[in-house]
Nucleic acid binder design. Structure first.
Length: 597
RNA sequence: GGGUGCAUAGCUCAGCUGGAUAGAGCAACAGCCUUCUAAGCUGUAGGUCGAAGGUUCGAAUCCUUCUGCGCCUACCA
């Protein structure tokens, strides 16, 4: 029986028997005992005083006595102010270790037929520019969220919506047409997404020149922005695209294919993938038909200029445009279509959009519009909203080229990993290929952990001049701890030691060992909590804590050099489980762990 | 203007149903490798938890007001 649950139910019984009061379990607070006090679990008795009508000390003492009398695993207690500190028998911890050691995927729940289906949308790139650090945060969060939900026993499908049409795409197409002289990724020896991005920036540069010129000729800035020849041509191109012009479509397909190849490469490096990819060029049509149907049903407002609106005043919001006066669709239209397509495909119980907090309003409105249009699943949509990644100078802007490019950053991280690793020289007997793989694992470990350990609501500043650390609270630190454990286990095997599946229950355990065992004990609860909160950061902070604790344990205790066989086995089992948990938790974060580094 | 989020050590961050003396890492300084991987371990120093009120046995955490920063409030996506 789970010891925490026992304490909970027993405490409740104690109050019933001692004070003749029936209370709810949630009034009983149990927390880990702080290190400076003796004990493993602490019951906070302050909330119980109104039932006991006695002093905190007296109440704690009475409950404490009841607990040790009624559970053989609770062997001692002490009371400090209103805190009842309980000590758990070593035998309990040992039997718990056996349990964890013999449980496959300890802490992880598996999905079954009754599990809820959750869609996770993330990444959602535009096909006019390469991915940057902001996209990295999105991709890592999305992938990790999917992993986290899987670990909590949900059926999870990862999806992506590619924003492959629209005026922004036409901009890079037009620039390429004007100035590229037929340049291709091959001829330029440039990754496809970077090539297209180059022309997107070029468009903006030239467009700004035109605006400046028009303003000099006496136009207002607003007029200039609208009338510049480049933007007009781009808009003409968009209309041609919408009307299915063959040449425009050919160019569009061609350039998009370059971008997709580039994206695939970056996704692969990031280690993220998707179960199904949707394209806006498909779903915007569905969106339009949804709107047209709703118009017929009289659910929408049509203005004199033929633009179509959803009236949200009863929800305290402004009206929302769904179709422009020229009949073309907007972002919201497309997302309506995507949502419906996905619901038809998956009949999801939940659909989580991993999108930046700049779109909080959009997703709020999306759900409300779906409700207005009569889709009863509108409340299954959720927005996992995260903060921006900023540079010391402020926001990153692709158009102005002030971004931290994803590919560049990854390459730089790999270099740092390589340098450190070569200096240490622990992989000298590895082949070039094997080494390269380890460098990448460490580099991505550093990058991913750096991003995922931060609470998703917070904006984060990234300073390119200060490289991402490899020491301290970092991915490589955790990977290193895992590697250390593997080294011990390897050495044990080499010397013919078999790790037991059943420990000797009378084995002595040190305080440091118990703190580590308690962290092991916490893992399932952390996975659960992190899942409820959609918080990879909780997993990241936990795995750091357990790695740190293990390193202290490792420093203070011999494992293989320990003479007492029972203690040696205990420490091996602790090491083995810790290793498994680190691997499991890192897997939730989407971070690989190497066997050596 | 309205809405929404954030503010904790010089820097990057934990602190999740309100609980004991607010914790880590980096940077700085001082130590620990002839013994299981030193990407590690130990120690020193560093705080008015943005400000002021309130709620209560108890507040970094909840409420109110204010300040600062960000985002949204587009016939952009």
């Amino acid at each position: 029986m789970d010891i925490k649950q026992s304490i909970l139910t027993l405490s409740r019984k104690a109050i019933n028997s001692l004070y003749n009061q029936d209370i709810e379990e949630k009034l009983i607070q149990i927390q880990g005992t702080r290190k400076e006090f003796e004990g493993n679990f602490t019951v906070v008795v302050f909330p119980l005083l109104r039932y006991s009508r006695k002093s905190p000390e007296q109440t704690a003492n009475e409950i404490g006595k009841y607990l040790i009398d009624n559970n053989k695993h609770i062997i001692k207690f002490n009371v400090i102010k209103g805190f009842l500190n309980l000590s758990i028998a070593k035998q309990y911890w040992i039997s718990f270790l056996d349990f964890a050691n013999n449980t496959n995927d300890y802490g992880i729940k598996n999905a079954n037929e009754d599990s809820e289906t959750i869609l996770v949308e993330y990444s959602s790139p535009n096909t006019n520019k390469p991915l940057h650090l902001g996209h990295i945060r999105n991709n890592l969060l999305g992938y990790s969220l999917a992993q986290l939900l899987k670990a909590n026993g949900y059926k999870v499908y990862k999806t992506n919506i590619v924003n492959d049409r629209g005026i922004h795409i036409c901009k890079s197409m037009l620039a390429w047409k004007n100035w590229a002289n037929g340049e291709t990724p091959e001829s330029a020896n440039l990754k496809g997404d970077h090539l297209v991005g180059k022309y997107y920036v070029m468009f903006d540069t030239e467009y700004k020149k035109e605006i400046k010129k028009l303003v000099a000729e006496g136009k207002t800035l607003e007029e200039a922005k609208k009338e510049a020849p480049l933007i007009c041509t781009a808009q003409r191109m968009l209309r041609k695209w919408e009307h299915g012009n063959k040449k425009v479509h050919e160019l569009w397909k061609n350039m998009n294919s370059w971008v997709y190849l580039g994206f695939d490469e970056t996704y692969k490096k990031l280690g993220v993938d998707f179960d199904k990819i949707y394209y806006e060029s498909d779903t915007y049509q569905v969106g339009k038909s949804i709107v047209l149907k709703a118009m017929k049903e009289g659910l929408l407002e049509i203005d004199e200029d033929d633009s179509v609106w959803a009236n949200l005043k009863d929800k305290g919001l402004e009206r929302k445009l769904l179709l422009r006066s020229d009949g073309t669709s907007v972002y919201m239209t497309q997302d309506l279509g995507t949502a419906k397509t996905r619901f038809d495909d998956y009949k999801f119980d939940k659909h989580i959009y991993v999108v930046g907090n700049e779109q909080d309003y959009h997703f709020k409105v999306l759900s409300i519009v779906l409700e207005k249009l009569g889709y009863e699943w509108h409340n299954r949509l959720q927005h996992m909203s995260y903060g921006m990644v900023e540079l010391p100078e402020g926001k990153m802007k692709s158009r102005e080229g002030t971004v931290v490019d994803a590919d560049d950053l990854i390459a730089e991280m790999e270099n740092t990993a390589k340098e450190t690793s070569m200096e240490l020289g622990k992989l000298d007997d590895y082949s070039e290929n094997e080494k390269q793989k380890v460098f990448r694992t460490i580099a991505m470990g550093a990058l991913k952990y750096f991003i995922l350990k931060v609470d998703l609501k917070k904006n984060m500043t990234f300073n390119p001049k200060e490289s991402i650390d490899f020491n301290g609270n970092t991915g490589p630190f955790i990977q290193y701890t895992y590697v250390r454990i593997q080294s011990v286990i390897r050495k044990a095997k080499d010397s013919g030691i078999e790790i037991t599946q059943q420990l000797t229950s009378s084995t002595d355990i040190s305080d440091k060992e118990i703190s580590l065992i308690k962290l092991i004990y916490d893992y399932p609860e952390i996975v659960n909590e992190a899942g409820i909160n959609y918080s990879p950061a909780m997993i990241a902070n936990y795995v750091y804590e357990i790695a740190k604790e293990y390193n202290q344990f490792y420093h203070d205790h011999y494992i293989l050099k320990e003479n007492n066989e029972a203690i040696k086995q205990l420490r091996l089992v602790i090491s083995q489980i810790t290793g498994k948990i680190i691997k499991s938790a890192m897997n939730i974060l989407g971070i690989d762990v190497p066997e050596r580094m």
